[in-house]
Amino acid sequence: KCTICLSMLEDGEDVRRLPCMHLFHQLCVDQWLAMSKKCPICR
């Protein structure tokens, strides 16, 4: 589950894993990281 948009991560979707190993939709986390340089879970 992407904790930014709260939707399930589905096969075939573009996802991004951060160095902390948390996984998000690529678009969601890219937009998040443009505003904050910290993982939305770890922050």
Rank of each mutant, 00 (worst) to 15 (best):
T3L: 11
R17E: 11
K37M: 13
F24V: 10
W32D: 12
C42K: 02
I41M: 10
M21R: 13
M8L: 13
C28T: 02
I4A: 04
M8N: 13
M35I: 05
A34F: 06
K1V: 04
D14F: 05
L18G: 03
L33D: 08
K1C: 05
L23S: 12
S36F: 10
C39F: 02
L6W: 09
M21P: 04
P40W: 01
R17C: 08
I4H: 07
R16Q: 11
D11R: 07
R16K: 15
L23P: 06
W32G: 09
A34P: 05
L27F: 08
L9R: 01
I4R: 02
C20Y: 15
T3R: 07
K37Q: 15
S7N: 15
G12M: 08
Q31V: 06
L33C: 10
L9M: 14
L9K: 02
C28I: 01
C5V: 00
D30Q: 10
C42N: 02
M35E: 14
W32H: 08
L18R: 03
T3S: 10
L23A: 12
Q31A: 10
I4F: 12
I41V: 11
K37D: 10
K38E: 12
D11L: 03
M8H: 08
L6Q: 14
Q26E: 10
A34E: 09
C5D: 00
L27D: 14
Q31P: 12
C28E: 00
D30Y: 04
V15Y: 08
L27T: 14
S36N: 15
V15H: 05
L33V: 09
K38P: 12
C5K: 03
S7T: 12
R17Y: 07
Q31E: 08
W32E: 12
C5N: 02
F24M: 13
W32S: 11
V15L: 10
L27Y: 04
M8P: 11
R17V: 10
C28R: 02
H22K: 01
D30T: 10
L6T: 10
D30P: 05
Q31G: 10
P19M: 02
C42T: 04
R16I: 15
P40C: 04
K38W: 13
E10L: 09
M35P: 09
H25Q: 00
R43A: 15
L6G: 14
S7P: 00
H25W: 00
L27N: 14
R17A: 08
H22L: 00
W32T: 11
C20R: 01
P40E: 05
G12N: 12
L27E: 14
L33F: 08
P40A: 02
E13G: 12
E10S: 12
M35T: 13
V29I: 13
C39D: 05
D30S: 09
P19D: 04
L9Q: 01
Q31Y: 15
I4K: 04
T3I: 11
M8G: 13
C42I: 02
C5A: 00
M35C: 13
L33S: 10
C2Y: 01
I4T: 01
I4D: 05
D14L: 09
Q31I: 05
C20K: 01
R17D: 04
F24N: 03
D11G: 09
V15W: 08
L18W: 06
M8E: 12
C2H: 01
K1E: 09
L33R: 07
R16V: 10
F24T: 09
V15T: 11
I41T: 13
Q26R: 13
D11Y: 05
L27S: 14
C2L: 00
C28A: 01
I41W: 06
D11K: 06
K37I: 05
T3N: 12
R16G: 14
D30N: 15
K38R: 06
M8V: 11
R17F: 08
D11Q: 06
E10P: 04
C20D: 02
W32M: 13
C28M: 01
S7E: 13
D14P: 09
A34M: 09
L6V: 05
F24Q: 03
S7F: 07
L9F: 15
K38M: 11
K37R: 11
M8S: 14
L18V: 02
I4Q: 03
C2S: 02
K1M: 02
C28V: 00
D30L: 05
P19E: 12
E13S: 10
S36I: 06
V29N: 04
V29T: 07
C20M: 01
L23I: 08
F24Y: 12
K37E: 14
C39S: 05
Q26T: 12
Q26K: 13
